[in-house]
């Protein structure tokens, strides 16, 4: 079966100049990223700031051209696909519903716009259907985003993303700007939509608890590289990569018994310019050996995980 989303060896670099006379440096935002998501499944993409999640999202949406590699959605290459086809296949939901809706447009316009752009008919009826689908009363069609609550705005953003009937939804931190109680509403909505519409989803988040709840399998990224990928159960029960373990340990649970995790990380911060061939996490890694820095780390299968660490056992 053809996967719904397939990324093959994606690489994207930015040229940066730190200071006016400094030589340009290459920042590798995404390196050799390969991902597959089967139809109807949800991939959780996890990592901290600077790990390349956002770049990966832009590439999947066709907004950013990778230096190298292929993206296929439903078996079709996205690079050569006409925009009108692309937008009917894949749509984003962004993090901040305050910023993802143009504040001067009415909800009616915002939700209907994608359809309007592609010559859809019966826009009004469709907008109504969409608002109903995401659980918003139809009378809000007349409102401006500023008059809605954060949760309502995120519902509008979801309605807008779904009106063209895409098969893939890319959710970039869709709940991290929301309050806990509203977050649960949106998670429930995404879950029911996924079931109802058979959506394939990529759920990008730094919140592991939310990812665990939504995703079927999880890919962990660090400084542009996928360092571990596994089915959600396997990853949460038995993470292989030291970074994944640190990340899991650092996730604070609403349980006072759990206390604060013992920090085993080095004090160094993630440095995207680190110029060594080996593991990018090595400078912070509690299990680091000299060879980690020297030898390029390849993805390998360990138990149920795909892991980029030669020392993981």
């Amino acid at each position: 079966m053809i996967p719904m989303i397939r990324l093959t060896d994606i690489r994207k670099t930015y040229r940066l100049r730190r200071g006016m006379f400094a030589p340009t440096e290459e920042l590798v935002a995404v390196n050799d990223l390969s991902l597959e998501v089967a139809k109807g499944k949800t991939l959780g993409l996890v990592g901290e700031s600077g790990c390349g999640k956002s770049t990966a999202v832009s590439i999947m949406l066709g907004l950013l051209k990778p230096d190298r590699g292929e993206i296929e959605i439903a078996g079709q290459k996205i690079g050569t696909m006409p925009v009108a086809d692309r937008v009917r296949l894949i749509q984003p939901v962004f993090q901040n519903p305050n910023a993802s809706l143009n504040p001067v447009k009415r909800i009616q316009t915002l939700v209907g716009q994608p359809l309007q752009l592609y010559g859809g008919t019966n826009v009004d009826a469709e907008v109504k259907r969409m608002l109903d689908l995401v659980g918003l009363p139809a009378r809000l069609a007349d409102a401006y985003p500023g008059e809605l609550s954060g949760g309502q705005r995120q519902r509008v953003a979801i309605a807008r993303a779904l009106i063209l009937g895409p098969r893939v939804l890319i959710c970039d931190e869709p709940t991290s700007a929301l309050d806990v109680s509203v977050q649960a509403q949106i998670i429930n909505l995404l879950l029911s939509l996924k079931k109802e519409l058979g959506l394939t989803m990529v759920f990008v988040s730094h919140n592991l608890a939310v990812v665990e709840h939504l995703a079927d399998h999880v890919a962990v990224m660090y400084l542009g590289q996928k360092i571990e990928e596994a089915a959600t159960d396997a990853l949460f029960a038995d993470a292989c990569h030291p970074y994944t373990r640190v990340l899991l340990a650092a996730t604070l649970l609403p349980d006072p018994q759990a206390g604060l995790p013992e920090q085993k990380l080095g004090a160094a911060a993630a440095d995207p310019f680190a110029a060594h061939r080996g593991c990018l996490f090595a400078p912070r890694c509690p299990a680091m050996r000299q060879s980690c820095v020297e030898d390029p780390q390849e993805l390998r299968t360990l138990r149920e995980s795909l892991v980029r660490c030669e020392r993981a056992v």
Binding site: R86, S100, N102, L117
Partner: peptide, 13 residues
């Protein structure tokens, strides 16, 4: 840099 601009590009505006 607002997200709604990126969203518009995503719908091919």
């Amino acid at each position: 840099h607002q997200e709604f601009i990126e969203g518009l590009r995503a719908i091919g505006a």
